[in-house]
Every structure is written in C-alpha cells, then in structure tokens.
Amino acid sequence: MLSDAYDLFWQYQDTYLAGVRNALTAAGLGLVLALMVGLLVGMVRFTSRGRLGKAMAVYVSLVRNTPLLVQVYFIYFGLPALGLTLSAFWTGVLALTFNSGAYISEMVRGGLNAIPKGQTEAALALGLNQRLLLAKVLLPQAAPTVLPAVTGQFVQLIKDTSLLYTIAVLEITKAADDVGNETYQFLPAYLVSCVLYIGICVVLNLLVDLYESRAGFSKHKRA
C-alpha cells in the first residue's frame, strides 16, 4: 500500500506538486490579507466602543460560529449573484482571508489588551495621538505575543485550503481525488496527500522554531 502510494506520487508528481503550489499560494496570500484584516479589526475593536466596534464583534462572532464550508459557499455562490465573478482560486483566497482575519483579529485584540494600561496613560500624557500610540507604543509591545499565534494560524490556513476542493481548485486534497479518479487507487492517492500535508507542517514548525529562536523577542519583554 505504501509502495503503491510512493509509485503514484512519482507517476503523478505534476498534479501533486501543482496542488502543493496552489495550496501554499492560497494560504500565503490568505495569511498576508488576513493579517491586514485582523490588524484593522483588532485595533478597531480595541479602541472603539461604538457602533463600528460592535459591527466588528458581530463579524468575528459570525465567522467563529459557522463552518468555513458555509463561508466558502456564501462567497462562491454569493459574489456571482451580485454580478461579481472571481476565479475559484481567488474566491478561495477571499474566503480564507475573511475567515482567518476574524481569528487573527482576536489574537491582536488579546495582545493589545494584555499590555498594562499604564503604557497607554503614559503615552497619552506625553501627548501622543491615537495613531502614534498604536503604532509606536502598543503594537510593538503586542507583537511578541501575537506573532507566535499568527504562525500557528498559518498551519491552520494550510489545512483550510483543503476546503477549496469543494469549489474545484486544484489543491492537495483535489490532487489526490484527481489521481484517485484516474487510477482507481483512492487510498494510496490520499495517503500521498496525507504525507504532503504532514511534510509541509513539519517544515513550517521547524521554520517557526528557527524564527522564534532568532527573533530575540526577549529584549522587548518588560521586566
């Protein structure tokens, strides 16, 4: 069975590697865009007690309490109904951004909330405005707690790309399905994709460890 999987991988490596490439691209784009969304939403929720903050809270709650598949379908079927046509790949990236953005915003908000209030008070007393307060005082101090969580979210994003299978994007799960349909060897085909996911995860975890040991966040830590 394992040797079947090994043979299948070499025989259909183009399909699998295209799947890996698409999955990594979608997850990477999703992470960058979700970081922007997450930072924005997190900061809004941290600073605003008004209507905007409430709207963002509803967004986060909706994303966290509904399946990603429903969100993917919502965007996949909803955008064309609004007259907007995106390719399946970009639909997927949009769904991943929408989803991960909410989770990252919670990490950002948590990181900002964990900073002692004295920092804000001191910055305001020194005459810093809201923008400078966030950019120069709060966000740099939140980064050491938020960034490790965000790298964890990237692993989650890789796993979430499997949902793009449902809208026919060639990613790792779809690659296994295609190979299975062609050869009728479904189990070995999926075993290959399983190993691919684990391999990506191992590499990512190694990179995260390396990055965390090199980043030298300890110098930012308050006594």
Binding site: D160, S162, D177, Y190, L191, C194, Y197
Partner: peptide, 22 residues
C-alpha cells in the same frame, strides 16, 4: 496527535472512506 493536528479533516474523512473498504 501530530498527524491529526497537521492534516485537514476533509482529507482524513476521504482517507477513512476509501481506506476501510480496502
């Protein structure tokens, strides 16, 4: 734990679906 935390559920359910009949 590592295997299940690093692979997506969607792929795993296919694996079980095609694996058990084997």
């Amino acid at each position: 734990v590592y295997i299940f935390r690093s692979t997506p559920f969607l792929m795993f359910i296919f694996l079980v679906y095609y694996g058990l009949p084997e």
